[in-house]
Each structure stands twice: as structure tokens, then as C-alpha cells.
Design a protein around this nucleic acid. Structure first.
Lengths: 107, 107
DNA sequence: CTGATCCATAACCCAATGGTTATGCTTTGT
DNA sequence: ACAAAGCATAACCATTGGGTTATGGATCAG
């Protein structure tokens, strides 16, 4: 029932969280400590954000001793790409609709 | 200073708002009344959402007498596409990094 | 002119969210 | 065995955010 896009958009709507995901995409797998070092918030905040990203399927974690390694899962972005192109497709269709085109032309 | 992606992601993170934008992409230009008819919230709520979408550049409005017509502006989605492919690009690069690939292979 | 329609804004409420500090559980190192 | 490190969770707080009803300003119809 819950649209997977919801989780995706919501996860990425927060700048801090998006920065974390970017950091992971740029640098690949990293521990919470490394991520916290680059972030501008506390370690618990980072952990919470990573939890949200994980639940959205954007990251995966791997425990190794006392440290947890997170890595990006960019495949999870595909629903977002799909939705965007879907919207673009509707947009294209409107150019084929002469009636609508004329309506738009007179401002 | 404020990343334009912020406004985009935040605007689209709300299901009601995304539904409004989809409705506009599917049906083209529509009045607030028409949009409210399809929405599951009150007219003021629709107006507020349209305001947010407008400020994010996702829609444009056109007043005609006492009614306001809104139309989608899908071009505004391109920063989103750009960001997504940028992240995907980082992801691709990691496959070229043999060291990282090996590290990932042993789980 | 008057009443109705269309929409935006105001004022308010409650839930969700992002941040913090405090704490506790493993794991590591000595 | 013990202290420290790494991380997650708990508890709490302030702000944001999305919803509502109420209202007001244009515009149209009669």
C-alpha cells in the first residue's frame, strides 16, 4: 500500500541525509565513524539517518567487529528515475495533442 | 546557498503534493477547483500545496478571471535527473576500482 | 446592486521530524 | 580483567509541516 517512492523521496528530502548518501556514493563503503567525521551532526544523528536510508533500501550495512560499514545501493534509485521519466512522458504526449497545444499558444 | 534540489525533493516528498503534480502532468493545465475535486484534501490545502510546487518551480499559474489555472513545468525535474545520474556515475566508477570490487566480493 | 463562486490567506492544532545528551551493549586492546 | 572505542537506542526538546475551519477579496451571474 505504501508507495516505495514515498520512502525514497522522503529519505532524500533531508539535506543531511542526502549528503550522507552522496558521501557513500563518492567514497564507497564507510564506517559510521568516518561518515560522522564528514557530517555536521552528532554520531547518534548519523546513525538515525543511516537507519532511515537503510529502510528505504538506499544503503546496506555490514557489521565487522564493533564497527558497522555502510555501502550505497544505487539500484534503489531506479523507482525515482522511473517516476521522473513517466512524468516527462506525460509531458511529451501533450505536445502531440493539437488542441492542447493551441490552447497553450494563446498564453 | 539553498540547493535547488532541496526544494525539489522536499516538494515531491509529500504524497498529496506528488499526486497533484502527477494529476497536472497527466491532464495538463487545470484550475484549483478541478484539482481539488480529484484531491482528497480541502481546497485550502490544495492551494498551499500548489504554492509549494510553484516555489519549487514545478508548476506555473495563470489567472483568468476568478479562477487560477495551474500547469506543470516538468523541465524543473532536470536537477533531479542530474543528481540521480551523478550518483549512478559514482556507482559505476566503483566497478572500475578493482580493489573495491574484491573487497565487496568477500561479502 | 446583490448574492454566489473561486481562490488565497489567516489562525490554529496535532503529529512527525531532526537535533541533542545520556546510556548501554559489544568488541578491542592492554 | 578492565578501560576505552564504536555504534545503536532511549529520552527528550524545539521546529516543521500538513491538515482543518474561518474569512476576505475578486469576479461573475442575476
Amino acid at each position: 500500500m505504501t508507495d516505495p517512492r514515498d520512502a525514497l523521496f522522503k529519505s532524500l528530502s533531508d539535506p543531511t541525509r542526502r549528503a550522507l548518501f552522496e558521501q557513500l556514493c563518492r567514497g564507497g563503503e564507510q564506517t559510521v565513524g568516518e561518515l560522522t567525521a564528514h557530517a555536521k551532526v552528532s554520531q547518534p544523528a548519523v546513525s538515525k539517518h543511516l537507519g532511515v536510508l537503510k529502510q528505504a533500501g538506499l544503503v546496506r550495512d555490514r557489521r565487522e567487529g564493533r564497527e558497522t560499514h555502510y555501502r550505497p545501493q544505487p539500484d534503489a534509485l531506479s523507482p525515482l528515475l522511473d517516476w521522473t521519466s513517466e512524468m516527462a512522458a506525460f509531458w511529451e504526449r501533450r505536445f502531440d495533442d493539437l488542441e492542447d497545444l493551441l490552447k497553450r499558444m494563446d498564453q
